[in-house]
Lab assay of single mutants.
Amino acid sequence: MRVFPVYAPKLIVKHARIFLTGVIWVKDLGRLEFEKGRFLLPRKSLPKVKQAILELNELIEAQN
């Protein structure tokens, strides 16, 4: 598990694309899981977490 002390979308996306499957922890967002290079949306999450995951997945799609 990698810990990101700040929310840096480009760096987080780079990590997810390299490792494809895993878990990261982002300060103020908490634990985020990714599989096959995409972030998974938890069943229950705060609106800011949901927005961050959608933003990260959009960045991943834009890079493909």
Rank of each mutant, 00 (worst) to 15 (best):
V49K: 12
S45G: 08
D28S: 14
P9S: 03
I60G: 04
K50A: 05
L32T: 00
I12A: 01
A16W: 02
T21A: 11
K48L: 08
K48M: 09
H15Y: 07
L59M: 13
A16R: 00
T21E: 10
T21D: 10
F39G: 01
P47R: 15
E33W: 15
P42L: 08
L56Y: 00
G22D: 02
Y7S: 01
V23C: 11
E35F: 12
E35H: 13
F39P: 02
K10M: 11
A62V: 11
P5I: 14
R38I: 07
E58L: 14
I60D: 02
I24T: 02
E35P: 01
F34N: 00
Y7V: 01
A16C: 09
H15F: 08
E35D: 13
Q63F: 10
V3M: 03
I24V: 07
I53E: 00
T21I: 08
A62F: 10
S45H: 12
Q63K: 06
L20G: 11
R17S: 11
L41D: 05
M1S: 14
K36R: 10
L56H: 00
R31Q: 10
V23M: 09
R17H: 07
I53P: 00
M1H: 14
V3T: 09
T21Q: 13
P42S: 10
K48P: 06
K36E: 13
M1W: 00
R2P: 15
V49A: 05
L54C: 07
L54T: 10
I12N: 01
E55N: 07
I12G: 00
E33H: 14
F19N: 13
P47S: 12
N57W: 03
R2V: 15
N57F: 03
E35M: 13
V23A: 04
A52I: 08
I60L: 12
K14Y: 11
G37C: 09
H15E: 04
I18G: 06
L41K: 11
G30A: 04
A52V: 08
K36I: 05
S45M: 13
N64L: 11
F39H: 05
I18V: 13
L29W: 05
L20C: 10
K27D: 15
A62D: 09
Q63A: 13
K36C: 11
T21K: 14
N64A: 11
F19Q: 12
G37W: 02
Y7E: 01
K10S: 13
A62N: 10
G22Q: 02
R17W: 07
E58Y: 11
I12P: 00
M1A: 15
F19D: 05
G37S: 07
P42D: 06
E35A: 14
F39V: 02
V26H: 01
R43C: 05
N64D: 13
R2N: 09
K10N: 12
R38Q: 08
I12R: 01
F4G: 00
P9W: 03
K44P: 05
P42G: 10
K50V: 08
P42I: 06
I12Q: 01
N57V: 02
R43G: 06
F19K: 12
K14V: 09
K27F: 13
F4N: 01
L40F: 06
L29E: 00
K50N: 06
R31L: 06
L32N: 02
L32H: 01
F39S: 03
K36P: 03
V3P: 05
L56R: 01
P9Y: 02
D28I: 05
V6P: 01
G37N: 05
K10Q: 12
P5N: 14
Q63N: 08
L20A: 10
L41Q: 08
W25L: 10
E35Q: 13
K48C: 07
H15P: 00
V23P: 02
G22H: 02
L59R: 05
V3E: 14
K36L: 10
G37A: 10
W25S: 04
M1G: 15
E61Q: 10
Y7D: 01
P5R: 15
L54Y: 12
G30V: 01
L46I: 12
G22P: 02
E33P: 08
Q51K: 14
L46R: 15
V3S: 08
W25I: 05
G30S: 01
I53F: 03
L20I: 13
A16V: 15
F39D: 02
E58C: 11
P5V: 13
L59S: 04
K48H: 08
G30R: 01
A16M: 05
K44D: 07
L41N: 07
N64Q: 10
L20Q: 10
R43H: 06
F34L: 05
K27C: 15
A52H: 05
P47L: 13
A62Y: 11
